[in-house]
Amino acid sequence: MTFIVFRRLTTIAALVTFALPTCRLAAQSAQLSAKLPRETALEVTRLIDSARALSLPTDPLVGVALEGANRHASAERIVRAVRQYIGALHSARDVLGDGALDAEVVSGAGAVLAGVNTSVLRELRAARPKEPLTVPLVVLADLVARGVPLDTASRAVYVAARARARDADFTLLRRFIEQDISAGASPAAATSLRLRNVPGVTPEDLQTQLPVTVPRRPNP
């Protein structure tokens, strides 16, 4: 009797294990087919399959493709965007470690696509080894998108992470910088100014330099 129950449970577990990804794969494929030309959908599906084989999160890739369709991007552009995103996800996963959360990998990929060097992600992981990096990385990408120079943004987030700033502190830092920029302050000056107000950041911290050199190339 016990053996029968065990066998049935094993069968159900096996079905769930294999059926759920299959259903998800089918759903993603249907989403792409509904919005993209057939050839493009096939190519994007193939790329997503390759990402899945690398254990990368695939939902954001579907989102990138659908966003491209919504923006009326060309098929070539959509495929290129998905390919770039896979590269960024792969880089982020490599640097943040296999144990990184999917959300961390996704936000890390966003930072990489914004132009942040992967070595900065590595230093952030070292500075904040036990807490998720999702919010700091989202804030880093946000600052870069608002025109804060790459080295200034990277250093600010690194200093705040080393000072054990909480997610809420990062969110407030971003919001204050946004307000200052809207009021006419230069993005770099606003970042340097607001970093002083992050809880835990000391005057000595403000002198901290990133252990890595961030190339001073213009923001994308």
Binding site: V64, E67, A73, R80, L113, V139, D142, R146
Partner: peptide, 13 residues
């Protein structure tokens, strides 16, 4: 938060 996206635009995160 916002970030640059793959289509030269900006998107909220």
């Amino acid at each position: 938060s916002r970030t640059v996206d793959a289509y030269e635009g900006t998107v909220g995160v």
